[in-house]
Each structure stands twice: as structure tokens, then as C-alpha cells.
Design a binder for these strands. Structure first.
Length: 348
DNA sequence: AAGTCGGGGGA
DNA sequence: TCCCCAGACTT
């Protein structure tokens, strides 16, 4: 059952060891690159709702947090519902945490939802319900790191700053440094290098354009260089798209881990709450799944299909219920399970 | 610098 | 299957 996959790629020198990484960029090349990115963005960017003029700084901050490690297409519907429900920071601040977690749905990393609510409270109480515009103040908010602070500074407040997400870093690494992959982490040096590349005007189109290019054209796996506006200047393409050795990176284990079970528990809680909101009475079972009475087993079988399957998923992962009990206690103490523990099967 | 934190879709 | 995704935070 447990594949503690510690699969490891051959150990080779990480990208950061390449001596010629992040070279100075010729002014002419930079100017043409900037023009190409901005022009391409204006012509080909997706019309995402948080890019419209009606988007508030708060809605942009929400979208950035939701997009942390989560593809944009998955964020879209949840963001729409979220902003309709809690248009201002103070609205989210006043919401029950259980509702916040339910609205987060299956975006993943649910602690981001709790941190976002903490951030909403901080903005409401400390900043007059409006998103701060200094990167330092933003960076002090829970769940707001270097990327998110820069993104809000650029996209919500129009200030000139380098927004370094995985897309921007990949596009810059390839087109201007000839590297297939970005360095593993953002060094002071890379940040300074990238900041010097931001044009004096059109910062938003530069930052958003690089992100869009990385998401749609200059993708990690199979870039579409034939339709890239930077193809003429791209150092990596000119070199024949050399495969660059990547740093050895072990993939995280999943099957059999607490993390997997925790995810199943959270799904179970979501499904049960959804069923309750639909008016379906979700019966509370207080015995471990292994010790159900006939009546309880019958009640379990009668649960709505999504709830039933969610319960069975938890059961399959932890038939004895001991890990479930421990993890639910952890989730409750972390604020991640709020009120919804009622639908679970806690040994007692 | 390395580990931990979900979840889903594509190659 | 493995990899990747508008990262942040702790150790």
C-alpha cells in the first residue's frame, strides 16, 4: 500500500552552479524584449476577471493567494463566488471560519484560506479595510510572501516592481540567460537581475505578460517556441533548446501518508456540510468505522453518494480510525476543521 | 537549504 | 506514473 516513493533523479549539479547564469543583458535586446512582451500581452492575454478595471486591490490579493501553487483555471470559479460573497476584507473577517473553508472548496492547502481570513482581519483593523500599498506592509500579512506582495504592488497599485513567480523566472531564464530551468530558489542576485529588467513604463504589462507567456507559451514541459514573441531574441532557443541538468529533487511521498488522509478527511467534511446545506440530514456516527452497529452501517449506506464515497475514502485509508482521530484533533486545533467534526467517526 | 503543506490535470 | 502549478512558512 505504501509507496514511500523516494524516487530520485540522478544527482547532478544544480542550475545555480552554472557560472554564466543570469548574465548582463544588452540594452538593445532588453528594449526589444520589453516591447515584444508588452505587445504580445495586449494582443493575446486571457481576459481574466481580476485584470479588469473593476477589480479591487482586495480582489486581486484574494486571487493571488488562491493562485499560490494552484492553476488559474481552477481558481476562477472559486474566486468569483468568493468575491461575490465577501467583497471587502471586513466581510471576510466577519465570516465563520467553517464557511471560509467550505468556500475554499478543493483548492488545496486549506491553511491558505485561514491565513487569508487573518489577513482580512489585519487589513480591516489595521489598515482601514483597504489593502496596503507598501511591499513591506503587505509582506507582514499572514500568507503573503515575496511573490504575492510584489504582485499586489504591481497589479493592484501599479508600482514598478519585479514580480517573480515560476513563470516569470522561467521566461527570463530561457530568453535572456539561455537556461532551460530557473534556479531552485530566488537568490538576492536573481532578484536584482530581474528588477533591473522591469521597464520604466508599462510595468503591469511586463509583469503580467511574462507570467502569461510562461503559462501559455513558454511552459515548463513543452514550450511552443514557434508562437513565442521572444523567439527572435531567445538565447535558449538560439542555442537549440539545450536540456539543462536539474538539481536532484525527490518527489514527496503520498500514498499512505497522513497528508493523504488529512485531505480525505477535509473532503469528507466538505461533502457532509454541503449535504446538510441541501437539507439532507447527515447522521452523526460516533463509533469507529470498524465497530459500527447494524443501524449505523445502514445509516452510512444511506448517506448521499458524495458523502458516502468521502466517508469510504477515509475508511479505506484508515480502517481502524486511530489516525483519523488523531488527525481530526490536529485539524481542529489548527482551526482547519471548524464545526464540521460532527460528520466524522471519532472513537471515544 | 530542505521539508511540509492539497489537489487536479496533462504528458 | 510523474510532473507541474501566479508559494509561504518552519526547521
Amino acid at each position: 500500500m505504501t509507496h514511500r516513493s523516494t524516487h530520485q533523479q540522478p544527482a547532478v549539479s544544480p542550475v545555480t552552479d552554472v557560472p554564466s547564469a543570469l548574465p548582463p543583458v544588452d540594452a538593445q535586446v532588453l528594449a526589444e524584449t520589453q516591447r515584444a512582451v508588452v505587445g504580445w500581452y495586449r494582443a493575446h492575454a486571457r481576459d481574466l476577471p481580476w485584470r479588469e478595471s473593476a477589480a479591487t486591490a482586495w480582489s486581486i490579493l484574494v486571487c493571488e493567494v488562491m493562485s499560490q501553487q494552484t492553476p488559474v483555471v481552477r481558481v476562477l470559479p472559486r474566486w468569483e463566488a468568493w468575491m461575490a460573497r465577501w467583497p471587502r476584507p471586513s466581510d471576510l473577517a466577519a465570516a465563520p471560519a467553517s464557511e471560509v473553508l467550505l468556500a475554499w472548496d478543493s483548492l488545496g492547502y486549506p491553511r491558505r484560506a485561514l491565513r487569508l481570513q487573518e489577513t482580512a482581519r489585519a487589513i480591516a483593523e489595521l489598515h482601514g479595510d483597504s489593502v496596503p500599498d507598501s511591499e513591506a506592509a503587505l509582506r507582514a500579512l499572514p500568507g503573503v510572501g515575496d511573490y504575492t506582495a510584489a504582485a499586489v504592488t504591481s497589479f493592484a497599485h501599479g508600482q514598478r516592481t519585479a514580480v517573480l513567480d515560476v513563470n516569470v523566472r522561467r521566461v527570463l531564464a530561457r530568453s535572456l540567460a539561455g537556461l532551460e530551468h530557473r534556479p531552485s530558489s530566488v537568490s538576492r542576485r536573481e532578484r536584482a537581475w530581474a528588477e533591473a529588467l522591469v521597464p520604466a513604463e508599462d510595468h503591469v504589462e511586463w509583469n503580467a505578460g511574462l507570467m502569461e507567456l510562461g503559462a501559455l507559451v513558454c511552459t515548463s514541459r513543452s514550450p511552443s517556441c514557434e508562437q513565442c514573441p521572444l523567439a527572435q531574441h531567445c538565447v535558449w532557443l538560439a542555442a537549440g533548446r539545450p536540456a539543462h541538468p536539474t538539481a536532484a529533487r525527490r518527489t514527496q511521498a503520498w500514498a499512505g501518508t497522513d497528508r493523504q488522509l488529512r485531505g480525505a478527511i477535509m473532503r469528507c467534511l466538505r461533502e457532509a456540510s454541503a449535504a446538510e446545506q441541501e437539507g439532507v440530514p447527515v447522521r452523526l456516527l460516533t463509533a469507529p468505522l470498524t465497530e459500527l452497529t447494524d443501524d449505523e452501517a445502514e445509516a452510512l449506506a444511506a448517506l448521499p453518494a458524495p458523502v458516502h464515497s468521502a466517508v469510504m475514502a477515509v475508511r479505506n485509508l484508515d480502517a481502524g480510525g486511530e489516525r483519523t482521530a488523531r488527525l481530526v484533533a490536529d485539524l481542529l486545533s489548527d482551526g482547519l476543521a471548524q464545526r464540521t467534526d460532527a460528520a466524522l467517526h471519532l472513537p471515544h
